[in-house]
Amino acid sequence: MVRLYTDDLNIGYGERLIVKNLNIQIPDKKITTIIGSNGCGKSTLLKAITRIIPHHTGEVILDGENIVKENTKILATKMAILPQTPESASGLTVGELVSYGRFPYQKGFGRLTKRDYEVIDWALEVTGTIDFKYRPVDALSGGQRQRVWIAMALAQETEMIFLDEPTTYLDMAHQLEVLELLQKLNVEQQSTIVMVLHDLNQAARFADYIIALKDGEIVKAGNCEEVITHDVLRQVFQIDAEIGKDPRTNKPMCITYNLIKGENKHEKTTDSIYSTFAVNY
């Protein structure tokens, strides 16, 4: 089943197009991961799908309706997004931050109801952050803070959660902690999870569906066996990858890789910078 899809979506900044004629379908109640090199349009796509930024042309359709025409509060009851580096006002407690997730349901003066408090406590319980409820967010570790942000998204009671690089700046243990929590939410709460990840092995391990982007266009979309392949990774990242099987999950994993000389854009850009430096100085 597909509730969310795009139709010939074009997204850009000014005259420059970042995402071009994109047609994707987000499987409902599954975990979808978007992969690709820096600057390929992953975060831009996520922001456009959730209406944080406008798109140039095309449509984003949710439940048969164009999201551009959707009421903001109603849309906020259907989808929640966590940006790459969320920031909260200094001095907020965990409970106060999570309470912001109830905004779409507030009326009048915005006072929290008994139902609101029940949902906030539920979100804290599910994410294992109930013991932090009265602590300042600033006093938490990176992994704890990320779980609190996920709790805020859960407090919105949406069926779809979008996350832009939720494991950034976290150590390996906290990365796994966050991804296992998202997997738990998908299984137990039937949440549709859409996230951007850089780690290919994490994408293969946790995703049901992977979308590989290059220069704002889809190279391949499908399950991990279809996307985490030598040919796809060569095209998307310009790497010569050795693909094996994860002995614990039996899913594909990138064992090692080399840069493909002459095809790596970063290498060319660096050479250009050095040449300019030599000429000017």
Rank of each mutant, 00 (worst) to 15 (best):
A155H: 09
V219Y: 13
D138K: 00
T57Y: 11
L112V: 06
I61G: 04
K133A: 05
T113A: 04
L181A: 10
G14N: 08
S191E: 13
G41Y: 06
D215H: 13
Q144Y: 09
I49T: 02
I211H: 05
K265L: 15
I34E: 02
G12T: 07
E70Q: 14
I26N: 01
E96K: 01
Q106C: 06
L197P: 00
N10I: 10
L185D: 05
Y209Q: 04
I49K: 00
T256V: 08
A221I: 09
V236S: 03
K47P: 06
T33A: 13
K251D: 04
R51E: 07
Q84A: 10
L200V: 04
L4G: 11
A89Y: 15
K30M: 13
D63W: 12
Y105T: 01
L179K: 03
E217A: 02
G39D: 10
P136E: 11
C254Q: 00
I161F: 00
N250F: 11
P83T: 09
E226Q: 08
E267Y: 12
I31Q: 03
L170D: 05
G95W: 06
S141K: 12
L75T: 00
I228C: 09
S275W: 12
T72S: 15
G142P: 03
I18T: 08
E226S: 09
D116F: 01
S43I: 09
P83A: 00
P247A: 12
Q189T: 02
I260R: 07
K20S: 13
L197G: 03
D240I: 03
S90I: 12
I193Q: 03
W149A: 05
N10F: 11
G41H: 03
A151R: 00
L17M: 14
L179A: 05
L213I: 09
S88M: 13
Q202V: 07
K69P: 03
R111I: 14
R3P: 03
K30P: 09
S99A: 14
Q190R: 11
L62G: 04
I243C: 08
G64S: 10
I67Q: 08
K42T: 01
P86H: 05
E159R: 06
K78W: 06
